[in-house]
């Protein structure tokens, strides 16, 4: 069972990033009036990049070379904590702590890779990533703690099974979704925080950090970004999964995957229809997530306090 579950999860983690990125790009092209690339375009891109040779700057050291691969390892580990098609292989009490810190490790690897090039652009990206990441961390914790306390579950998977049924839990549910969506947009460098398709390096965050990577390393980074996005969207998808838990495991999995794709469409629409925030406004945007986290926690406290 464990092996089977692991295989299913890994298969989903292999395919979903490609599909999700493809769906987002397709939605964006539709809004722009274009036909758009095929849904599986990222897979072709990855194959092309993997065949190439990397070019390293003479300034860089082994840190630059290994950074993408270590970031991938961290993102994969984090993805094993979140339920996507099956109950997660590595669910345990307080696994959200490990989840957040695994993402943190990936972030540090990317930032160090960026600083290794000695380029001002990449230092700029690393600085922004570090700042926003630090501000964002408490929001994720507040939401996770609130969800876990409310459902009585110790693990992230259990907490995400929350369904609203009274006023306090509706407040908790809405606040959690809001906070998690902000967490995803900041962590995965999507609009309105970061525009993955912008051409101006001065305003980039994630893309500017990987400017110098090429060949297989770039393929790994592109895939890692997709993987993080799928993991992040899976958090929200589990919380909003319309399939009731009584409908069976398979239907639940289909619901989560369906919601991930639906959220990808939402992300595509948001990226087509909104402008990127000014960089100095981003901390305030993150503060909304923090506020939502506080509300989630207080709503839980209210509900549990009324219950006793």
């Amino acid at each position: 069972m464990r092996i089977g579950a692991l295989a299913a999860q890994l298969a989903a983690l292999a395919i979903l990033p490609i599909v999700v990125v493809g769906v987002i790009n397709r939605v964006k092209s539709r809004w722009a009036g274009r036909k758009g690339p095929p849904i599986l375009q990222l897979a072709f891109d990855l194959r092309r990049l993997l065949r190439k040779r990397a070019v390293y700057s003479a300034t860089t050291t082994g840190v630059f070379q290994l950074a993408p691969w270590l970031a991938l390892a961290a993102a994969l580990t984090a993805a094993l904590i979140v339920p996507i098609v099956v109950a997660p292989v590595l669910a345990f009490r307080l696994d959200f702590v490990a989840f957040a810190y695994a993402w943190g490790l990936g972030r540090v690897a990317l930032m160090l890779g960026a600083l290794d090039t000695g380029s001002a652009f990449e230092g700029m990206g690393a600085s922004r990533e570090a700042t926003f990441g630090a501000l964002l961390e408490p929001a994720l914790f507040l939401v996770a703690v609130a969800l876990c306390a409310d459902t009585g579950a110790g693990s992230l998977a259990g907490g995400l099974a929350l369904r609203p049924h009274d006023p306090a839990s509706i407040a908790l549910w809405v606040a959690s979704i809001a906070a998690l969506l902000i967490v995803v947009t900041v962590e995965c460098a999507r609009m309105p925080v970061d525009d993955p398709t912008t051409h101006l390096e001065l305003t980039m965050i994630h893309e500017v950090m990987i400017l110098d990577h090429s060949g297989p390393d770039l393929a790994v980074l592109e895939y890692t970004a997709g993987l993080k996005l799928v993991t992040g969207l899976a958090l929200v998808a589990n919380l909003t999964n319309p399939v009731p838990s009584a409908a069976g495991e398979l239907a639940g999995a289909a619901g989560v995957v369906g919601m991930i794709v639906a959220l990808a469409i939402v992300v595509g629409c948001v990226e087509s229809l909104t402008a990127r925030l000014k960089l100095r406004v981003v901390p305030q945007y993150i503060a909304i997530a923090l506020g939502a986290g506080v509300i989630a926690l207080l709503a839980t406290a209210w509900r549990l306090g009324a219950g006793t």
Binding site: R53, V55, A58, Q65
Partner: peptide, 13 residues
């Protein structure tokens, strides 16, 4: 995989 890589200056846009 990186053994095969070439060396050049930092691209930096």
């Amino acid at each position: 995989i990186g053994r095969r890589a070439r060396r050049h200056v930092t691209w930096g846009c």
